[in-house]
Amino acid sequence: MKRFYISPPVAALILAVVLFLLSGLLPNGFGKDIHVAFAQATNIVRLSVFLGVIAAGQTLVILSGYEGIDLSAGSIVTLTAILTYVTVNGRDDKVLSAFLISLIVGAIIGLLNGLGITFLKISPFVMTLGMSGVVTGLIIIINHGNVSGKVAPIMTRLIARPLTPKIPIPNAIIIWVIFGILMWLLLERTAFGKHIFAIGVNRITSRLSGVNVTAVNLAVYSLAGALAGFGGFLVVGNTGVVFIALGQPFLFPSIAAVAVGGTLLSGGKGSYWGTMAGAIVLTLITSLLTTMQIPDSIRRMVLGATLLVMISIYGRQRGFRQ
């Protein structure tokens, strides 16, 4: 008998659409007004962009397997956001250098994670957790209570506003779509991408078939750091302010987005499309609960329960009997 099967990214997307349509029925929902509905949908996708980009690095690390996870992503986001804020200081000509600094700083932190994990055999969970503490410490030292800086007008123009006034789609979404295509190309159309999947399934067989496991692993963690750095750059471009706890709220949702998108947390199987869908679902649920003006306690419980239901549907591991 053939089992009825929907791939996780599609399932997550269907869930997002259904939830969004149901949200229209709420007292302060969009009702029957198609324009309001469209504006709300765009806004939710725009908010998902930041989580989606930060979760991209997480996707790579989780795909590479062997308990791969990046708990330093949240603090890298804060660090690069602050660095961008300080470097740019309201000047358009500094944006490019701030962008490069974000990527490089993120990549260096990621590389350190990778070195600790591959050479010192520290488990990824603990290594990145420790690194997160170190980076948070650095942020406190740099920040010293408050930083002076300013976001450049061109950043807000490029990230938060639409491309042309006629099409009300913010640039962040367009950036995300291009980013998604690049991630797909990286994972599915390059040798490096194939190697990530290969080492996620079995490192010994990968090594025997000529994959340089150490190099791929180092590259994955560096890339994940750089992507978190890019996330920080985008976040500050959108919000325009920085504070110490800016990035941390993105950390666990980024792992949850990967899981909801159907990527196996044990590695070797998954896609970035899934993560994108997962990011949208999570952002949608969070913002729905916020607009419904439910107390924080119930909001958290609903979020936890929804996550449990979603991972129960397709996050199950193989039973022992099979």
């Binding site: 666990f252 949850a256 947390l265 044990s266 936890g304 449990l308 991972i311 199950r316 591991q317």
Partner: peptide, 14 residues
Amino acid sequence: RLQPIITTYATSFL
């Protein structure tokens, strides 16, 4: 048979 990290993360919200 759910994955421990993500499951206990979800229940921690509960």
